[in-house]
Design a protein around this nucleic acid. Structure first.
Lengths: 140, 140
DNA sequence: TCTTGAAGCTATAGCCGCTACAGGTATTCA
DNA sequence: TGAATACCTGTAGCGGCTATAGCTTCAAGA
């Protein structure tokens, strides 16, 4: 049996986080010691590893809830898993693209600033007037 | 004089957001009509445009607070502005890189899943065991 | 066996940057 | 004048944790 601290050390997350996962129903309630402390099994440990791994890949808690429930039934067709992963990858791709647009614009602003006084600073000037932007980054 | 709705339409943000900016001290308190409604000047409008533009480039509220305060003094040296912008660009770059690492790993997982049953699904398998990851994405 | 310090417990509030109510008042246009 | 729309304040919620306060329990050493 593992204490909450064992699991925390093992997965690199904090005890508070594990309690939080329990509270939102992502981790099942474990057994308790005589003194009311949580006592986990290997199954709990595996589940927490799964959760942390999926989180580290950027899946949302709701995604993970679904992945866990899908993975429960070994004989189910895995197309739903596949679809969820693809959806997430596409969202990551979109996010990368929008960040690259931002970076292009930031680079341009920084490159055009030749030092000197704030009154002539290109960065401030561009921030004051979106029409000076070239990359068409969205204002919203 | 502009109403809060005028400013909202003009900048593409919601009236609630403008009131929020006032509440946190990012926008100054405007004058009020006889009936206690906010009445803005062109200066307010410019400031809000600046804020929204900087937000759309990913600057945090605190960054923007500093940019605004730096931009107040036209004769100040703009190196602080430059440094802030570079710092932000570097953070964006780091974020892009970490998202690209994620995407590589997601792509690999998705590519290896050949359909079939959940029991053989590579996506689930990888999520269960981080050692199956190649890209070395951070677990934390 | 006793002590002490670390680890655990619950409950609650805070982080960011908004957004969404609820329940009331002001303004505007026909 | 009346109806529709906009605006007001105050509060709570989103996601995914993190931090605190004030307590109890556990485990290792003397």
């Amino acid at each position: 049996m593992f204490s909450i601290g064992d699991l925390a050390r093992d997965t690199g997350c904090k005890a508070e986080t594990i309690r939080y996962y329990e509270q939102i129903g992502l981790m099942p309630e474990p057994a308790r010691s005589a003194g009311n402390q949580r006592r986990y099994t290997q199954r709990h440990r595996d589940r927490l590893h799964f959760i942390r791994h999926a989180r580290s890949l950027g899946f949302t808690i709701d995604d993970i809830r679904e992945l866990l429930s899908l993975s429960d039934d070994e004989h189910r067709d895995c197309s739903a898993v596949d679809a969820l992963a693809r959806r997430h990858r596409d969202a990551v791709t979109a996010r990368i693209e929008s960040l690259m647009t931002l970076r292009r614009e930031l680079d341009r602003m920084i490159g055009e600033c030749g030092g000197g006084e704030v009154g002539q600073c290109r960065i401030i000037e561009v921030l004051r007037d979106h029409r000076l932007c070239e990359s068409g980054h969205p204002l919203a």
